[in-house]
């Protein structure tokens, strides 16, 4: 799966989860879902474009697992 598909799936899962957890009536469920889903996708795209203008550095070191 590519980066966007994974981000889409992650936002979808979190949106569904918080909608079912916090809201009961259909109208506010749809509103909250769109807020969470749109916020995650839109926020990631905006942050991604902001990082585009930053200079790239060396790759991050691989964390140890014991």
């Amino acid at each position: 799966m590519n980066h966007f598909a994974l981000m889409f799936l992650y936002a979808l899962l979190l949106g569904l989860f918080f909608t079912a957890l916090w809201k009961r009536d259909r109208g506010s469920q749809i509103r909250l879902f769109l807020q969470v889903f749109g916020g995650l996708i839109g926020g990631a795209i905006i942050l991604g474009w902001l990082m585009y203008f930053l200079p790239s550095g060396p790759p991050a070191p691989i964390p140890p697992i014991q």
Partner: peptide
């Protein structure tokens, strides 16, 4: 729904 979401994750 919760089981599906957490299981999928």
């Amino acid at each position: 729904l919760f089981a599906a979401v957490i299981g999928c994750a």
